[in-house]
């Protein structure tokens, strides 16, 4: 009886394994890989800030008039990305720094909420940081360095001067390798855009990338365990 049961379980297991293997797609990003939907305190629109977005007036010279997005450089808010392991979440002060002089959206619900954090309620809890939740949360045993990637793909490859109109195409492209296209319409802060898994990282590390803007020399990312696993 036991033997029969065991055989049945084995066969069932094999069937399931074969089925899942056939269904397995190369990193298309299933719901599971993209992580859970995170309820952020404020639904922050990345596309409005850093993206180009849709064209409003194609004839306009001023990019702020031309597109929905403001094309702010990612590193204006995520300051540490070029010089540290982490990119950093901007302090509330930085949000207010701009938004106190942007009267046009002052009454928008999200901005109102932002100012609630700044002004506090009944004179209490003023300037309290927005309790953002972590979306791109790597496990503790992984060492990821923003600085290395930004230096390599943004500065060394000369993407700084890519857009002569003063836009941020270069940095947006580099950030999008891992964070997805933040100019996309649904680019809020609730969920990852890419599966940040080891196989997904290794996929890119095993490819040749140009070393600088003009040369033909290429190099690969480090490929030994110890570089990322700590």
């Amino acid at each position: 009886m036991h033997r029969f049961l065991r055989l049945t379980i084995l066969l069932a297991g094999m069937f399931v394994a074969t089925g899942s293997h056939a269904a397995g797609q190369p990193f298309t990003g299933t719901e599971d890989q993209l992580g859970p939907e995170v309820p952020q305190p404020i639904e922050f629109p990345h596309n409005r800030h850093a993206g180009k977005g849709e064209v409003i007036d194609s004839g306009a010279q001023d990019p702020t008039q031309k597109y929905v997005g403001m094309e702010i450089n990612c590193m204006y808010c995520h300051t540490y990305a070029r010089r540290s392991m982490v990119s950093g979440i901007p302090p509330l002060r930085k949000c207010i720094g701009c938004h106190q002089s942007i009267e046009s959206v002052r009454e928008a619900p999200r901005i109102k909420k932002l100012f609630e954090y700044w002004e506090g309620t009944d004179g209490k809890d003023a300037q309290k940081p927005v309790p953002w939740l972590k979306v791109h949360d790597l496990p503790d045993f992984v060492r990821f360095n923003h600085e290395r990637h930004i230096q390599r793909f943004y500065f060394q490859q000369g993407k700084v001067t890519q857009d002569e109109a003063g836009g941020n195409d270069g940095i947006r492209e580099v950030c999008s390798y891992c964070h997805g296209d933040i100019a996309a319409k649904n680019a809020t802060v609730a969920r990852r855009q890419k599966p940040i898994t080891m196989g997904w990282c290794a996929n890119c590390h095993q490819k040749d990338h140009a070393v600088d803007a003009t040369g033909t020399e290429t190099a690969r990312g480090p490929n030994d365990c110890f570089t990322c696993h700590k």
Binding site: F141, P222, D224, C225, F226, T227, H229
Partner: peptide, 15 residues
């Protein structure tokens, strides 16, 4: 455990 390019004898805890 394997050798790294900078001459260390690495130990990968996950593995």
């Amino acid at each position: 455990t394997n050798h790294t390019e900078d001459g260390l004898n690495s130990q990968i805890y996950n593995r």
